[in-house]
């Protein structure tokens, strides 16, 4: 698989985009997915860097979340900004990670992410409900390296 944008089929991508869009109506936090080739030794650091370069840092509520996948070295990370990180326990991220990876091991990438999105979106809408109409232009929710 040379082209990592083929990591999801069109249908899967569509379903994920829909899930992300749905999640975005309930909370001020934004969830995005980033697919890269390799994460290296520190996937969480790679996720953090991707989080910054995606412009997710420094949002008003500091509550955006990124699902990070590196295809070739099979790494996954979930990363949340300061405020959401303060609200949830460290075990929360572990739970999300385990739930997603369990599905990934069965090569069910879409299902893994959908599950992860549901869990994170529930937390986000609980802590940061969206009380206003969402007028922010949403750039691509799923982005690919290269």
């Amino acid at each position: 698989m040379a082209d990592i944008s083929m990591f999801f089929s069109l249908d899967d991508r569509m379903e994920l985009e829909s899930a992300l869009l749905n999640a975005s109506y309930k909370t001020t936090g934004e969830i995005r997915i980033r697919v890269e080739k390799k994460a290296g030794r520190d996937p969480l650091g790679a996720a953090r860097r991707a989080f910054i370069s995606a412009g997710l840092k420094n949002s008003h509520d500091r509550n955006n979340v990124l699902f990070y996948i590196s295809v070739f070295d099979r790494r996954f990370a979930v990363f949340g900004d300061d405020e959401i990180n303060k609200k949830v326990s460290p075990e929360f991220w572990e739970t999300v990670k385990k739930a997603v990876i369990a599905k990934f091991s069965e090569r069910e990438f879409k299902l893994g992410l959908l599950g992860g999105i549901t869990i994170v979106s529930e937390k986000l809408s609980g802590f940061f409900p969206d009380e206003k109409i969402d007028l922010k232009e949403n750039p691509e929710s799923i982005t690919f390296e290269g």
């Binding site: 994460a39 520190d42 996937p43 969480l44 650091g45 996720a47 953090r48 860097r49 989080f51 910054i52 840092k57 990070y68 070295d73 099979r74 790494r75 996954f76 990370a77 979930v78 990363f79 949340g80 900004d81 300061d82 990180n85 460290p90 991220w93 572990e94 999300v96 990670k97 385990k98 990876i101 990934f104 091991s105």
Partner: peptide, 12 residues
């Protein structure tokens, strides 16, 4: 960059 946020990582 390391001084913000949190999360978890692993491989499958």
């Amino acid at each position: 960059q390391d001084i913000f946020g949190g999360g978890a990582a692993g491989s499958w």
